[in-house]
Design a protein around this nucleic acid. Structure first.
Lengths: 228, 228
DNA sequence: GTTGCCAAAATTGTATGCAATATTCAAATC
DNA sequence: GATTTGAATATTGCATACAATTTTGGCAAC
């Protein structure tokens, strides 16, 4: 029966659509998500939209302000750092998990993904590039075989996309193209240490490419600084 | 204003009550959560209950089966192992974080917690003991200063409680009483390596005390007991 | 030109009613 | 006696109507 498809999954599907849009930078951080507009767009009642928004809020991608509505999160500098800190904890272990139990079909899937990334770069398809960049890490998480890690990464990746949208320096060259390839190579070679090192380097590289110093947090305004 | 208290937090408070009840083993894994009963017990409309259940489902503590209703999760053996695997990844880093940035007041709070645990043991207050056992790890997570880690632990601890409820061997002596104390001692001494080792030992110890054949039946929830 | 205020409009919060689906239980059949 | 069927009951799914709150826009006062 298509109970899963038609019933509960409907709200989940809406949430996924929003998440995907965030991952492709088609929704900006801080955007207001009006219930009635969404209901109209998705052709469902507000009830379903509200369900989806509650789910998204629980995952951290959306903030629900009482009587004000739902907004796509805009992570502060501090939050951005915490996202990367957690990823640096999780992803090395993901690499170890992948190496220790990847099947042939998993490796194949990884290589197919690399090819998709290469194609997207060749086509200069910016949104697809961004999207696939995140999906690479989600794919690794799904292969590593721990559903809780996978779930956590499914929350952290969209947040990372928001962080990049907020703090990326435009002229910085995009994610170095070959880092994912190198990681897969290390995985294929079964080289734990190398894979972990590459992953850490990769994450640090992404974080360092951001401008997380002069950030505008939701802190109180320092009027002395404004006037001085 | 108390907008947060009265508006959105109402559903969150319900979810927290359920979570607390799970952590104190006052709701068994697999229990059905009837919307109308809950609405009656909490004296709110089903709408609010539904919101709370959606949140709990997103956090993994509740499973929503289409047209069947909401049930407290009952983690499989595999899921139980994954919970512990993830905790073994996260909590050593939590220890490092706590050591690197705990304030005096944090240490004080930890010691107060140890005393509360000691008191509960002295009074043989089983539910309080269980509850405080989990809270210890949540307290550490809150001190370590990464809100995403804290959130993750806030999901993993209740899940661990479910796992224990499902697979614990009754005659096994409860959590060794002094492991938390030793961990705090290592933290106070600033001894990273020791703290991490103790934490890993602690987690492994809990997991090893479990029996993979035990089980629970889906009891009906006694809402008076949950609320009382 | 700016600020303050009030009414109108738009938006969110909540409850309730009804439809759809599952569960229960008793009667009928084998 | 066990199993199946089907009506009665209970529960979930959903949308809509209405209340509460915020936002908007204009008008007056300074």
């Amino acid at each position: 029966m298509t109970a899963d498809d038609s019933n509960k999954m409907q709200a989940e599907k809406i949430a996924e659509t929003i998440t995907n849009a965030v991952m492709e930078h088609r929704i900006a951080p801080g955007s207001k998500l009006s219930e009635s507009r969404m209901a109209e767009a998705f052709k469902v009642s507000r009830t379903k939209i509200r369900q989806a928004l509650t789910m998204l809020a629980e995952s951290g991608l959306v903030r629900l302000l009482p009587n004000r509505g739902a907004f796509i999160a805009s992570p502060t500098v501090q939050e951005a750092r915490e996202v990367f800190a957690l990823r640096r904890i999780l992803e090395p272990e993901i690499i170890r998990g992948v190496i220790s139990q990847a099947k042939k079909s998993d490796i194949k899937q990884l290589k197919e993904h690399l090819k998709a990334e290469k194609d997207a770069r060749a086509a200069s398809n910016r949104r697809t590039i961004i999207r696939l960049s995140g999906d690479f890490h989600l794919l690794l998480a799904s292969i590593c075989g721990n559903r809780y890690i996978e779930k956590m990464m499914a929350e952290l990746c969209p947040l990372t996309c928001l962080v990049i949208a907020l703090y990326d320096v435009p002229q910085t060259p995009a994610c170095p193209e070959d880092e994912h390839d190198k990681i897969v190579a290390a995985i294929e070679a079964g080289d734990d240490a190398k894979g972990v090192e590459l992953m850490l380097h990769h994450l640090t590289h992404i974080e360092n490419a951001l401008n997380l110093d002069g950030g505008f947090d939701d802190d109180q305004v320092d009027w002395d600084m404004v006037l001085g």
